[in-house]
Design a protein around this nucleic acid. Sequence first.
DNA 1: GCCAACGTTGGC
DNA 2: GCCAACGTTGGC
Length: 157
Amino acid sequence: MAAKEINYWLMKSEPDAYSIKDLRNEEETLWDGIRNYQARNFMRSMKIRDQAFFYHSNTKPPGIVGLMEIIETNLIDPFQFDEKSKYYDKKSTKENPRWDCVKTKYICEFKNMITLKELSEIYAPEELTLVRKGNRLSIMPVKKSIAIDLIKKLQQN
DNA sequence: GCCAACGTTGGC
DNA sequence: GCCAACGTTGGC
């Protein structure tokens, strides 16, 4: 039986809010709080067994710190209905929820991160959208060839 | 603190 | 539907 094609993604998080160490401790987490349609749509196209790079943003320096696996998809983000949450969306209804999330599982933390600076020296913005100037997307796809290349590099470190 | 790059909102 | 004003993300 042919192995199912898996796709690769990159997911940003500020470590003050949620870090790779938090994920290592908890093993699994719901990737909630996404309130950007483009990022949401990328999440919607994720499949179980896909893998995602964990990226620490707003750090000195920012960069890729680990790898995780997508273990559940098409989940409803519970915080959109929680009036006390900063992720509350009064326009979202239970009949027609606006925001999704996925569940991810820890695979590994890389001993040495690959910084954004290093990535931008290796890859052009057309190859890796992460290095596009002013990129604010919190979730984005990573081309398979680049993903495999990155994993190899990160494991050598 | 500044700024680039968008996304969102609201007037018309 | 257009566009100006404003807000947000996130690098530096």
